[in-house]
Design a protein around this nucleic acid. Structure first.
Length: 464
RNA sequence: GGUCCCAUCGUCUAGCGGCUCAGGAUACUGGCCUCUCACGCCAGAGACACGGGUUCAAAUCCCGUUGGGACUACCA
């Protein structure tokens, strides 16, 4: 059995988006699962809309997702001589011909055909004229007039197309550049791609491409068309549906492994399993379990999965992802061990890294600023004596652990007759500035004796 | 309009002829736990689009209807 060789061919006319990322992941996963190879290629034959900054952005997003490639990145714009070579083959064998019909007449004919209720396909005006190469002429593929072309799709099954539905598509523009259907085929042939997994919006292009493979005399690769990802209105995902670029999710505080997990699960399943690590996906991924119907992108489920990945990760692996978010709040972490201890207290209460960064600010600031409502409610003179007593007890505490701190509070409750809640909330405000935080004993242990005592003193001063 | 694809709870899905008056996840509701917020646990509501076949038996196979999507460019 030949080594599987897949590819991802984005066109740099925008950022990497949800749908594109998913097909990239599927191809990458298949290559990794089968111990094959994955190729990256930029389809930038549309010189007007292609931009270098999109190339950079796509590269960055792929890297962030953890998708690496074994070959490339290739750029179609650098391969024109190769397309020329294959074009000549087609011309020489009579599979292609020059056409001088103007765009205006073509448009007019298309419109007229539509009005008559007919198919708006090329009428073959220049097909048998035997026109020579001239300035401004395009090259068309001579598509067979009869017969059927069958796509043996690994996901959809056998799909057949009547060749009469296909017209003589343009394979080289008047400016000499190749068009999509031709360039992909030549690239996939020359890059030895044998398995093509792509969105099913390409299914209708496939018979044309198969015909090109045959005309060129090359074996047809394995095709697999995955269903599309739609927005909540069942329409193709677009800006209207909120964030669609991968970069936006990175900035919003999502973990790449959570996004990958979500995207793969949208359209693929492994029984009832919902949570997967990247390693598990590589191990378990298979084409047979890809679904047949389009899926609607659901941000809520992605969020839930992100939460699960945050909970399941080690603080050490989370730390580098969290730092950029802390930096947004002008916090530069100097003590990684301290950061990790802080993270471990926040894992069950953060849905995103942004949440986590916000929730961990109190660990890093020098001076706590109290939320107005919290201070008004809990930092009142009636709690002064309690805070002072706590301060005094902490001063003599030999070890500053959750366990011993809990004992201190238990003693306090006995001595003052107060409930834990009425002691803990004022302390929480004193230590964090607000009424919501991880458990009071956890944060005290992590903050350490020095920070705790100075914050308690500050609170006492504030009340006075 | 034509061609092609698709159809299980709101959403993602399990199901590949009997084990299913359909299971999981998410979201939602109620309860428990509790130092706040979470986590966790328990419970509840919620789906086989419709109509014909085939079969002893259909969510599962076939046909049609309806609905949705894609393509129909000198975009990719």
């Amino acid at each position: 059995m030949k080594k599987v060789r897949t590819r991802f061919p984005p066109s740099p006319t925008g950022h990497l988006h949800i749908g594109g990322a998913r097909t990239a992941i599927f191809n990458w996963l298949l290559a990794r699962h089968e111990k094959g190879e994955f190729v990256l290629r930029f389809e930038d034959t549309d010189r007007v809309r292609s931009r270098q900054d999109f190339v950079d952005s796509i590269l960055q997003s792929l890297e962030w997702l953890g998708i690496d490639w074994d070959d490339g990145p290739y750029f179609q714009s650098e391969r024109y001589s190769i397309y020329e070579e294959y074009l000549q083959k087609l011309l020489d064998t009579g599979h292609a011909y020059y056409c001088t019909c103007s765009q205006e007449t073509l448009n007019a004919k298309r419109k007229a055909a539509m009005e008559r209720g007919e198919k708006p396909k090329y009428d073959g005006t220049c097909r048998d004229k035997g026109l020579p190469k001239t300035e401004g002429a395009v090259v068309r593929f001579r598509s067979p007039l009869t017969g059927i072309t069958v796509v043996n799709d690994v996901i959809k099954g056998m799909v057949s197309f009547d060749n009469r539905e296909l017209d003589d598509l343009i394979i080289q523009r008047s400016d000499g550049s190749p068009t999509y259907n031709f360039a992909v085929v030549v690239d996939d042939i020359t890059m030895k791609i044998n398995t093509i997994i792509r969105g099913d919006d390409h299914l209708n292009n496939t018979p044309r491409q198969i015909l090109l493979y045959k005309a060129l005399g090359y074996p047809v690769p394995v095709f697999g068309h995955v269903p599309m990802v739609l927005g909540s209105d069942r329409k193709r995902l677009s800006k209207r549906h909120g964030a669609t670029s991968i970069a936006a999710y990175k900035e919003a505080g999502y973990l790449p492994q959570a996004l990958v997990n979500y995207l793969v699960r949208l359209g693929w399943s492994h029984g009832d399993q919902e949570f997967f690590t990247i390693e598990e996906l590589v191990e378990k991924f298979s084409l047979e379990n890809i679904g047949h119907s389009a899926g609607i992108f659901n941000p809520e489920k992605l969020l839930a999965l992100n939460k699960e990945h945050i909970m399941a990760s080690d603080p050490q692996t989370l730390a580098p992802y969290l730092k950029p978010f802390l930096a947004q709040y002008r916090i530069k972490v100097t003590d990684d061990a301290y950061l990790c201890r802080a993270i471990s207290t926040l894992q069950t209460r953060s849905k995103t890294l942004l949440d986590m960064a916000k929730g961990s600010l109190f660990y890093f600031v020098d001076h706590i600023t109290y939320e107005e409502k919290a201070a008004r409610k809990f930092l009142q003179p009636d709690i002064l004596a309690t805070l002072e007593l706590l301060l005094q007890k902490l001063g003599t505490l030999p070890d500053f652990t959750e366990e011993s701190l809990k004992n201190v509070f238990t003693d306090m409750m006995e001595e003052t007759g107060l409930k834990l809640g009425s002691i803990a909330q004022p302390v929480r405000v004193a230590l964090t500035g607000g009424t919501v935080s991880p458990g009071i004993f956890e944060i005290m242990e992590v903050l350490g004796k020095k920070r705790v005592t100075s914050r308690l003193k500050a609170a006492i001063d504030y009340i006075r």
